[in-house]
């Protein structure tokens, strides 16, 4: 079973603030990590390989420094890694990212399953998985919390939705996005670390992927950020005073007064 894992390198924190006086962004030296949800995707890929044989190829579209995330993925059990990098891909929104990833997956050609994280913590859209599946015209299942089995061209999975759990069967090749309930990612092994050090990670550019220039990067991105600002906190609240009992009495009175209870 040949598995492709889509993994993105993201800033290790989402703590970015706007300086209220200058209205500019304040960011401190932030280290980059593997998107947490993609770590579950990778772990599931490696577990499926251990169960059914085959190999795990990790792909990531990003700047040259994303190679570090790919090396880490190899230390965590991936067999191969490919960086999808070209200045032409810069500024991609989810549509352009999905197109570019789907070109890379088509180029790898021989695959049974693509695994994505449910969402990234920086882009945070949960759109790249389903859009990529659609461009590949393959089966898609989101929010997978367990892979039950893979057999005779079919994959059976559990899926977490707001109402409960579904069991779904999909034809292979398929693309699934995974939630954190699916597994507990392992730590890198010594052997893995050695492998990661010496691994050769190719970079595929626009030329190798034969991408349509009109569909990648900024040009291929229909959406555009036009404004950024700090969220408004409009509420001016009241901290209740007195002994705990007095506070509770006054709270209940106020809530009854505004007919909330």
């Amino acid at each position: 079973m040949n598995i492709i894992v889509c993994l993105k390198q993201v800033p290790g924190t989402t703590k970015v603030n706007i300086n209220p006086e200058t209205n500019t962004l304040m960011r401190q030296g932030i280290e980059n990590i593997i998107n947490p949800f993609d770590a579950y995707a990778l772990e599931e890929g490696v577990r499926l390989k251990e169960r059914y044989g085959g190999k795990v190829t990790v792909i990531s579209m990003g700047p040259p420094q994303a190679e570090a995330a790919l090396r880490e993925a190899i230390s965590l059990g991936a067999d191969e890694a490919i960086l999808i990098g070209d200045r032409a891909f810069a500024g991609a929104d989810t549509l352009a990212t999905s197109y570019t990833l789907s070109r890379a997956i088509k180029k790898i050609k021989d695959f049974d399953l693509v695994i994505c994280g449910r969402q990234t913590i920086d882009g945070d859209t949960a759109q790249v998985g389903p859009e990529t599946a659609e461009m590949l015209r393959i089966a898609f299942v989101s929010y997978v919390s367990k892979v039950e089995e893979v057999k005779e061209g079919l994959i059976q999975v559990h899926r977490l939705i707001e109402e409960g759990h579904e069991t779904i069967e999909a034809t292979l090749p398929a693309l699934i996005t995974v939630v954190k309930e699916i597994n507990v990612p392992r730590l890198p092994s010594l052997r893995g670390k050695a492998k990661a050090k010496s691994a050769v990670i190719p970079t595929w550019t626009a030329q190798e992927l034969e991408t349509d220039p009109a569909r990648v990067g900024l040009t291929g991105s229909p959406t555009r950020v036009v404004k950024i600002f700090s969220p408004q906190r409009t509420r001016t609240g009241e901290v209740l005073q007195g002994s705990p009992e007095e506070q509770i009495d006054s709270l209940i009175k106020k809530l009854r007064g505004s007919q909330l209870i």
Partner: peptide, 18 residues
């Protein structure tokens, strides 16, 4: 969140989440 990205991808248009 699972369905509409696929519709947007087929129509090749933009989609803003959440």
């Amino acid at each position: 969140r699972s369905l509409i990205p696929r519709v947007a991808a087929t129509l090749q248009t933009g989609l803003t989440a959440d």
